[in-house]
Simulated scan of single mutants.
Amino acid sequence: MPLPDTMYCAQQINIPPELPDILKNFTKAAIRTQPPDLLLWSAAYFTALSKGEPLPVKDRVEMNIATQKTNTGLTPRLLKVLHKETCCKEKLQEKWRVLSLPMDQLATLLLLGNFSSTINWMEFFALSCSSLGGNIKTALKFACEILTEDEEGGPARIPFDTFVKLYTYLAHLDGDIPQDQIDSFLRNMQTQVDKQNGMIQERGRPTEERKEGIKGTN
């Protein structure tokens, strides 16, 4: 004789107190990231969560306005997800697959940068920004927006030495920019940075001290 189905009442079911928050955060992350392969992404999400690693999550939904699609290849916010931790080639391929990005796009970037099993992340990052922007100026704009700690819509500032490394790498990769032009551009940028830092320091001085400084230049 088969055993009767076990009957449970609400008092017998133990629901972990943290479960609702875990599920709510997971749902919000899935909605923001819009992964084409939800099961693959979910496995990566909970694996990262259990290990305390950066989650493969966008900070908000990102949609291509022209096509109204979310799976159009690498985007600034997906690159920001990838940037959360430096990784080797194998790990990068895994994260790329989790985000359902085109593997041929990754292969092209690795080939262009001549990367081996160990990847210089900032060089790969710069090359990825170039693939988003199409030219060095736009690539650096994307890089600043992704790397900045300023609030969204702000000046998107990054350390000048980071800017120098990104620009120098892309300029050398381009191959058509003479070294003296690279050096001249960076000198001009350094002058602008020094001037801006001087203005910030001046604004931070007390009013009477600023007046004395102005008098001293006359």
Rank of each mutant, 00 (worst) to 15 (best):
E62Y: 08
L55M: 08
V57P: 00
E62T: 03
I65N: 13
A66W: 02
N71W: 14
A66V: 07
E62L: 00
V81W: 05
N71S: 14
L82G: 12
V61N: 00
L78F: 06
K84H: 14
P56S: 14
R60T: 05
E53I: 03
T72I: 15
A66S: 05
V61H: 05
T67L: 12
R60F: 03
N71M: 11
K80V: 01
L79K: 00
I65L: 13
E62D: 15
R77G: 04
R60A: 12
H83S: 15
A66H: 03
L82K: 03
L55P: 03
N64W: 09
K51G: 03
P56Q: 04
L55Y: 10
T75N: 09
P76K: 02
V61C: 09
T75H: 09
K69Q: 12
T72E: 12
H83C: 11
G73N: 12
E62I: 00
T67W: 05
N71G: 15
P56V: 05
T70Y: 10
M63W: 04
E53N: 13
R60Y: 08
P54Q: 06
V81I: 08
I65H: 13
L82F: 14
E62V: 00
A66F: 08
R77H: 08
L82D: 11
Q68H: 07
D59V: 00
K84W: 12
T75G: 03
V81H: 09
H83N: 14
L55C: 03
K58R: 07
P56N: 06
K51D: 04
H83K: 13
K69N: 11
V81D: 12
E62G: 01
L82A: 10
P56A: 07
L82I: 06
